[in-house]
Design a binder for these strands. Structure first.
Lengths: 337, 337
DNA sequence: CTGAAAGCGCTTACAG
DNA sequence: CTGAAAGCGCTTACAG
């Protein structure tokens, strides 16, 4: 096996020699941690330029014992939620000189474990967990002394920094929009009710109705399993009732599109005969016809918030209490409701 | 500023001491580069377990002079093309023990430059460039002795490993599908014709028609600028002709959705009165009504192919010639054509 | 304002 | 089959 002929890159030693100073001084013009005579600094900087010197991060990381790297462990990069999250996080940490190590596929617990292990071996300074099995991952990281921030978890993790959307309020705002538009018989197609977003969004739906003095009608609450087909089936049942609802709040956009399918199949007009509101603002929300009214979750902001929490944690160590940041959502009114 | 109380992780030295062997031996049971007596090995492994030993990658990278890391520099992570690419790449390189460093936002040349610089400083072993300004980036990397693979570039880069889809054939296959369905007046809404995918897809359209002995009709070729609105406008003009086309090939799905908009606005039925075929198979392609017939570009495969090329390059150095891999696409027949 | 030297935790010729 | 020691390229007390 041949070895790539990497052009030998200049070291601190070479720079020191050429500039006629010690390695110590070169190191200090690099870090600024100690005053260096203006003239000396100028010379050193010139030599660095001439030699194309780039500090070796391994050496730096090894002696300083920090990597200036952050891991992002993500459930499914293919879900549009995560790229935006990654972008926000990268923006934030890059400002502080950190880079992003990306681990995908954490829907599989085995992949999560391996991502955590690799993160520990590579001595990342912090980890953002956007994965379902955050709990055990966080434990392993804590043992290794690596701070973690959890994002969009289904449950509140104990003692960890955490950023999330306000799922209850999201649903409340969506349903309030329908109520303000005059709707009174409003159904909801829920997601999986085992986890947090599903449950919280159902609660928001209930609170909005309650505040309008509308009694709950259990038959208007149906489960759509977060999927287009599940929602279409549920909506079919809903729309075939004698007294069908005039509006439906769907706990995500994919299910809203399923509801649209059902309405179309039954020749029920949207929004005239059935208003539909979703959550997420996925790309398709503006591409379907009629375009979807929905609640946008500011994924970029979530990423940035996670970065902020992590940087603060890195600066403060464990001295400060765990924090929870909530990001603001936004109602996007389009054609469907 | 407080320092995080990182639990001291065990070092090779600690393991060696506890196991009553030398650091050399511990290192060799780790790497397997030299035989170790079965009994000794067993003891060392047990001690490693007990101490929770994780080798420090900085130290390893520093002495071995390789990082076991690969950079992915991406134009816009938010474009669904890239997450899948990233996943494929990560899958491939993880098999060889490499991790992925992600850089987003390379649509901005400044961001690309900074990503390249960081990649050099961090001594990544290789880079995958999925960015428009691949040329200058590749040059800088070459100077640093870091191999690069280019993905989905608009121009063929010289001397570099390269993976791409076969854009000409993609268009040919899409148009052939329409021809086989009996269409003879087939329009095309093209992308930007400055770059490769736009031009190549127009050529594929032409070849398909030519092979069917159909003369080119310049008025049936209109530009849609890769956007929904651009395509809708173009389609409007097309559909208002006295003799309007019976089918239209759109150079991407977003434009196909624009064509759908236009047909809908003019009450022209799809596919009865106007068949529509796109390219990409974005998520929305299956969500719009009628769902879109399209050509899927296997992004995951592209990522894996890039990983394969890069790993081979890392193994062979510059001894082998630059390679070009093409990935196979697939016609997805749905409702629109 | 500047340097000599130890040390970070590994790998790897060299020697036996 | 095993060890002692040099070295990778930085950072950072310590000393002046």
């Amino acid at each position: 096996v041949n070895v790539a002929v990497a052009r030998e890159s200049a070291t601190i030693k070479a720079v020191a020699k050429a500039a006629n100073v010690s390695k110590t001084t070169v190191s200090h013009v690099l870090s600024g941690k100690r005053p260096v005579a203006a003239e000396t600094r100028r010379i050193v900087i010139r030599i660095m330029d001439e030699l194309g010197f780039q500090p070796n991060y391994f050496a730096r990381a090894l002696s300083a014992n920090r990597s200036l790297a952050v891991s992002l462990i993500v459930q499914d990069l293919t879900n549009p939620f995560y790229p935006m999250l990654g972008r926000g996080l990268q923006q934030k940490i890059a400002e502080a000189g950190y880079i992003l190590m990306l681990f995908d596929g954490a829907a599989d617990p085995q992949a999560t474990k391996s991502a955590v292990k690799t993160s520990i071996q590579r001595r990342v300074d912090g980890v953002v967990l956007a994965a379902p099995n955050a709990r055990s991952a966080a434990l392993a990281l804590e043992k290794a002394g690596i701070p973690a921030v959890v994002v969009g978890a289904t449950r509140t993790p104990r003692g960890l920094d955490w950023v999330s959307a306000n799922d209850e309020q999201i649903a409340y705002d969506a349903v309030s929009h329908l109520l303000r538009a005059g709707h009174r018989r409003i159904a909801t197609i829920t997601g999986d009710l085992d986890g947090n977003p599903g449950l919280a969004r159902l609660e928001g739906y209930r609170r909005a109705l309650a505040e309008f003095g509308i009694g709950e009608e259990p038959s208007l609450i149906v489960e759509g399993f977060w999927s287009r087909e599940g929602a279409a089936t549920a909506a079919m049942a809903l729309l075939r009732r004698r007294r069908r609802p005039g509006a439906v709040f769907c706990a995500n956009d994919v299910m809203a599109i399923g509801a649209l399918d059902a309405a179309h199949a039954l020749a029920i007009g949207t929004p005239e005969d059935l208003a539909i509101v979703g959550v997420d603002d996925i790309e398709a929300a503006s591409l379907v016809r009629p375009s979807l009214t929905t609640v946008r979750i500011p994924t970029l902001e979530i990423g940035r918030a996670a970065g902020t929490l992590l940087l603060e944690r890195l600066a403060n160590g464990r001295t400060t209490r765990p924090r929870h940041m909530r990001v603001a959502h936004e109602l996007i009114v389009r054609q469907s409701g």
